[in-house]
């Protein structure tokens, strides 16, 4: 296989995965106005739990220290990853979502990100510490027995299936009465509460569902790469997804696809060829981080609604059973 095809396949796979990440974040922020500044931690929890669900039992030796090791076949690890991320979201949401001000959840998420990162690194028996998990089996490849290059095609198909399902679900939710309540909460929590909506509960649902997207995306990532460690979920990773959402269009799932294409591809791939100086091995990474930060600020400044802004909902009114004359007898519409 030519290296160009290989490269394009990799890009396509990450494009699918970033779209999935993005839809979850978009549900949280774009639709509901929830600030999750450590979205990548939910990705990581999904990845780790999916990883240890798919791996053989750990041998307890070097590189083999991890929990579970259930050796489960493919569609199950992503489900476990999604559930794990959802449980973390429940805990975090319980602490952070009850407060009225959005800063509090943001503070809680920043803190949770730090803590989870430190704990996963330091407590080796969980997920093999700073070295992380490796050798996670590729989905279905025990059946196909393909080499990595050809296996790419299989994995792309898997990712596309997940992305299509994920898009279908998120679109339905966005354009349902549920999505409407979330947007009402985003605009004004008090109004939503005054209309009888349990704001905490709805925010929690949005937070959890969004985190499931993160977890499943993480599960796909570890299934693809086969490995995962704490350097895979740094703060910068969260903000690549944020930038993708803001650039593509927050509140618009199609815009999110666009953003998932533009930002990660452009930034990860575009800055890959920056020179790495011997004195500063992380110069390219640093410049990438600066660029993402700058992009966030500029997007917020000049086009906070994104390239594809949230679409206006227009109801079709033909064929309605209407209540007759204005000011007629029936004042309270039935």
């Amino acid at each position: 296989m030519s290296s160009l095809v290989f490269y394009l396949l990799t890009v396509a796979i990450f494009f699918c995965i970033y779209s999935i990440y993005g839809w979850g974040l978009n549900l949280q922020f774009g639709l509901t106005g929830i600030l999750n500044f450590t979205y990548i931690t939910f990705v990581a929890i999904g990845a780790y739990f999916a990883g240890v669900a798919a791996l053989q039992p750990g041998n307890g030796g070097i590189g083999g220290q991890y929990i579970l090791g259930w050796h489960l076949p493919f569609p199950i690890p992503p489900i476990i990853g999604g559930i794990a991320a959802a449980i973390l979201a429940l805990l975090v949401g319980y602490v952070g979502l009850k407060r009225l001000r959005s800063d509090y959840l943001a503070i809680v998420t920043v803190s949770v990100g730090q803590i989870v990162w430190t704990l996963i690194g330091n407590i080796t028996p969980l997920f093999n510490g700073w070295d992380g998990l490796a050798g996670v089996p590729q989905p279905f490849n025990s059946i196909f027995q393909l080499d990595f290059n050809h296996y790419q095609w299989i994995f792309l198909v898997i990712c596309i299936l997940f992305a299509v399902l994920g898009f279908w679900i998120i679109e339905r939710l966005t354009h349902s009465p549920f999505g409407r309540v979330l947007r009402a909460i985003r605009e004004d929590e008090d109004v939503a509460a005054a209309l009888g909506k349990n704001v905490f509960r709805y925010k929690m649902m949005a937070f959890v569902i969004g985190s499931i997207y993160a977890g499943v995306g993480g599960a796909l990532t570890i299934a693809y790469i086969g490995a995962f460690n704490p350097s895979g979920f740094t703060t910068m990773e969260t903000f690549i997804i944020w930038a993708a959402m803001l650039v593509g269009g927050s509140g618009n799932n199609r815009g999110m696809i666009l953003g998932a294409f533009i930002v990660p591809v452009l930034f990860n791939e575009g800055t890959r060829f920056l020179p790495s100086t011997p004195g500063n091995p992380l110069l390219a990474v640093s410049i990438r981080g600066m660029a993402i930060g700058l992009l966030l600020i500029l997007a917020a400044r000049y086009r906070p609604q994104g390239i594809l802004p949230e679409r206006k909902t227009i109801f079709r009114l033909d064929g309605l059973q209407q209540g007759g004359e204005v000011g007629g007898d029936r004042v309270v519409p039935q």
Binding site: F239, S286, M290
Partner: peptide
């Protein structure tokens, strides 16, 4: 808040660069 977090990413990486 998004702006300040973007700023944090920019500054930390700026120092690192």
């Amino acid at each position: 808040l998004v702006v300040t977090i973007g700023l944090s990413l920019f500054l930390e990486n700026g120092v690192q660069a």
